[in-house]
Write a protein that binds this DNA or RNA. Structure first.
Length: 359
DNA sequence: GTCCGGCACA
DNA sequence: TGTGCGGGAC
C-alpha cells in the first residue's frame, strides 16, 4: 500500500471515532472516496521541515495557548481581536518531526527520551491482533453519516460539534444528539447562533455535561460566524481558543476535520496505556507522565508519524476491552510479557474481558 | 484538586 | 447504593 493510501486508511479509522461511520462504510469508502489524494489547505500546510524555531504542534506551544485561553475568561469577539488573530501564521505554525527524525526532541532542547522503547513494534502488532475482532465500543460506531454527506464546510462544523459532544458520552448518544441538531437545521453556526441555549440544551440531552456543552456550542457558533466566515478554525491554536476545546479535541478536529496530522490525539486511554507500557516518561526521568499532554509530547518524540493517527483508535479500543483503567485483564493480554505494569494492578476475578461502556 | 451529569457496574 | 468514567474550566 502506498504511503498516501495508508495514511488515508489510518485517517479513516479516526474519522470513524468521531463521526461514527459503520465499519462497512469505512471499508467501502477506503476503496472509493479516500482513494483520491488528501487535500491539504495551503494556508495550513507545514513549512520548512528543518525549522525548529517554531513548533505549532508542540505540547509547549499548546500549553501556552491553553494558558492564554484560560486567562481570557469571557470570550468576546471584537474587530480588534480579529486583527490580532491575523498574526502571521508562519510565526505560529511550524513543522513537526519527520518520520525518521527521532532526534527531534533534542533539536528542540527538550530532555525527553527520544529513544523508541524496545519491542514497541511487536507490542503494537500484538495489540492490533487483539483488536482485530473489533469488539470495542470504539469500533461499534453507530452509523453517523450525517457529517459525511454534508458539504466540506458543514462537514467540518459537524466534526467539531461531534467532537465537543462526544467527550464522555456514548457514541449512540452523541449520534442521537447530532441527528436531532441536524433534523432541526441546527448543525451550522448561523442557526446555532440564533437558537436559544435552552433549546440546544434540550436537543443535545443526555450527552455528558449538556448544560456546559450547550453554552459552549452557542459561543463556538458565534465565533465561527464572526471570525471564520461560518467555517471552523483551521489551525491548532485557533481551535484551542474555542470554549470547551482542549488539546485532545483540537488534535482530533485537525486530524478529522482538516485531515492534517499535527500531533497525536492523546486521551485518557492512550495516556494510561503508554504509561503502563513505559512508553513515555516525564522529561529527564523515568517517572510516569502526569497528563495526556505530557504523554503526547513524550510519545511524539519517538513514535513514527505514520502511527500518529492510528494509535488513538487502537489504544482506545484496547483500553476499553483489555487494558481497562480498573482491573486490567492482564491474563488475556498478549503483550503482558512486554508490559512492566502487567499483573501489578488488581485484576478482575474473571479473566473474561467484559463489554465495557462506550467511550 | 473539584466540578460538571448521566450511567454502568461492582 | 457508591463510585468511576473523562475532557475541559476554574
Amino acid at each position: 500500500m502506498s504511503v498516501p493510501l495508508l495514511r488515508n486508511a489510518i485517517l479513516l479509522s479516526v474519522t470513524a471515532r468521531i463521526v461514527s461511520f459503520s465499519n462497512r462504510t469505512i471499508r467501502k469508502m477506503s476503496q472509493t472516496r479516500f482513494s483520491s489524494k488528501i487535500q491539504i489547505p495551503t494556508s495550513n500546510h507545514k513549512k520548512n521541515p528543518g525549522d525548529e524555531s517554531c513548533n505549532g504542534g508542540s505540547a509547549a506551544n499548546i500549553r501556552v495557548f491553553v494558558r492564554k485561553k484560560r486567562a481570557k475568561k469571557s470570550l468576546e469577539i471584537s474587530p480588534k481581536e480579529e486583527v490580532k488573530a491575523e498574526e502571521p501564521r508562519q510565526q505560529q505554525l511550524c513543522s513537526l518531526p519527520d518520520i525518521e527524525d527521532f532526534a527531534y526532541g533534542k533539536k528542540c532542547g527538550y530532555s525527553y527520551s527520544t529513544q523508541a522503547p524496545e519491542n514497541w513494534e511487536k507490542v503494537l502488532e500484538r495489540i492490533r491482533r487483539m483488536r482485530s475482532s473489533e469488539d470495542a465500543p470504539v469500533d461499534s460506531m453507530g452509523c453517523e453519516k450525517a457529517g459525511n454527506s454534508l458539504p466540506p464546510k458543514e462537514r467540518r462544523f459537524a466534526v467539531l460539534v461531534s467532537s465537543l459532544l462526544s467527550s464522555q458520552t456514548k457514541d449512540h448518544v452523541t449520534h442521537g444528539a447530532i441527528q436531532r441538531l441536524l433534523q432541526n437545521g441546527l448543525l451550522n453556526p448561523d442557526a446555532l447562533d440564533n437558537t436559544e441555549e435552552a433549546t440546544i440544551k434540550n436537543l443535545i440531552y443526555p450527552v455528558g455535561f449538556y448544560t456546559r456543552k450547550a453554552s459552549n456550542l452557542k459561543k463556538i457558533a458565534k465565533i465561527c460566524q464572526l471570525k471564520y466566515d461560518g467555517d471552523i478554525p483551521s489551525t491548532l491554536e485557533d481551535l484551542l481558543q474555542l470554549p470547551g476545546i482542549g488539546p485532545k479535541m483540537a488534535h482530533l478536529v485537525m486530524n478529522v476535520g482538516w485531515e492534517i496530522v499535527l500531533g497525536i490525539c492523546v486521551d485518557t486511554h492512550v495516556h494510561r496505556i503508554c504509561n503502563r507500557l513505559a512508553w513515555v516518561s516525564r522529561p529527564g526521568t523515568k517517572q510516569k507522565t502526569s497528563s495526556p499532554e505530557e504523554t503526547r509530547e513524550s510519545l511524539q518524540l519517538w513514535l513514527p508519524k505514520e502511527e500518529w493517527v492510528a494509535i488513538n483508535p487502537l489504544l482506545v479500543g484496547f483500553g476499553q476491552t483489555i487494558c481497562t483503567p480498573l482491573r486490567p485483564h492482564c491474563g488475556t493480554c498478549t503483550v503482558s510479557n512486554f508490559c512492566p505494569s502487567a499483573f501489578k494492578e488488581i485484576s478482575s476475578p474473571s479473566s473474561t474481558p467484559k463489554k465495557p461502556r462506550s467511550n
